[in-house]
């Protein structure tokens, strides 16, 4: 790869996702983008760059996605989950005391680490939630990640990314070199295939929505559509957890409704 190509690709990924690809991560570009070039019958990364310069929006998105997936980990970034435990849950336990029901949506859940982190967190709070009906719906557009998510089986490497050792021992069973999530926890999460851009939300009246890994891939218009879609699925006082918004001016979160509780927790991203 020439320095110009490297600069072009890392600039593209940085502008759209905030993720910085340093020079020593050049191999990551090669590893992840070569298959895209091959699939599109382009002449290697040089051909890919030429195609991107045309420009090719769909291709650009595919490139950014290839460079940003695998970013999922248990209790990603820590703070949103801490907020969920210490602020959001106590608030909703009060607000929903009459119905004793909580509905949670993990959008773009990838291989399941996010919804399962929520499930473990709720299990740790089981005393306070006794007698409550809690549902977690987790959605993703990609069928293969959902298959893995449903299985709830993770490698030694994956369970060391973000999962405290006490929770590993408590909620996972070791099977060979893999770690298998407790079936009771697995049963807490319902996984569904869902395209957040094209389809209506997988339900209404959600109390907590996590959409932390997704918006960075979209342009302004798509972000607005997704946020409207999320807003329409949420109860009035629901809480929305966003990740870094990327290049989005945060003001018009939803044009037709306002949400009171949006927690946008921007964390410096990096590979």
């Amino acid at each position: 790869m020439t320095p110009t190509e490297l600069e072009f690709l890392s600039d593209l990924v940085r502008r759209r996702s905030g993720i910085v690809i340093t020079r020593d991560k050049e191999y990551l570009l090669e590893n992840r983008l070569s298959p895209i070039a091959t699939q599109r019958k382009l002449a290697g990364l040089a051909g890919l760059v030429t195609a991107l310069r045309r420009p090719d929006e769909a291709l650009a998105r595919e490139v950014v996605e290839a460079m940003t997936t695998n970013e999922t980990l248990f209790f990603r970034d820590g703070r949103p989950f801490e907020m969920l435990r210490t602020e959001v849950l106590p608030m909703l336990l009060k607000e929903r005391a009459a119905s004793r029901g909580l509905r949670i949506w993990s959008a773009a859940c990838s291989t399941g680490q996010e919804p399962y982190s929520i499930a473990m967190l709720l299990r740790e709070e089981a005393v306070r939630l006794a007698g409550w009906r809690v549902s977690i719906v987790a959605t993703d557009i990609t069928r293969s990640v959902l298959t893995k998510a449903r299985a709830g089986v993770y490698s030694q490497f994956e369970v060391q990314r973000g999962l405290p050792i006490t929770l590993l021992v408590k909620y996972f069973k070791q099977v060979g070199t893999q770690w298998e999530l407790d079936p009771a926890l697995r049963a807490m999460v319902e996984f569904r295939e869902h395209n957040i851009i094209q389809e209506a939300a997988p339900g209404a009246g959600f109390d907590i929505v996590f959409c932390r890994n997704l918006l960075i891939y979209f342009d302004q218009d798509q972000k607005r559509r997704v946020l409207n879609n999320l807003a329409a699925s949420m109860a009035e006082d629901a809480v929305l957890f966003l990740g870094a918004l990327g290049a989005y001016s945060a003001s018009p979160i939803a044009s037709n409704r306002s949400l009171k509780n949006v927690a946008s927790i921007a964390v410096p991203a990096g590979l």
Binding site: L73, Q156, F157, Q160, R161, G162, P164, I165, T166, L168, V169, Q174
Partner: peptide, 29 residues
């Protein structure tokens, strides 16, 4: 990397536990 070892370490006051092989990201996390 078996549960018995991990549990013993926790019981004796270890705060965290890394199973080799590790990489810089695991240490950082």
């Amino acid at each position: 990397s078996d549960v018995a070892h991990i549990q013993q370490a926790i019981d004796l006051g270890a705060n965290e536990y890394i199973m080799k092989p590790f990489d810089s990201e695991i240490i950082e996390l």
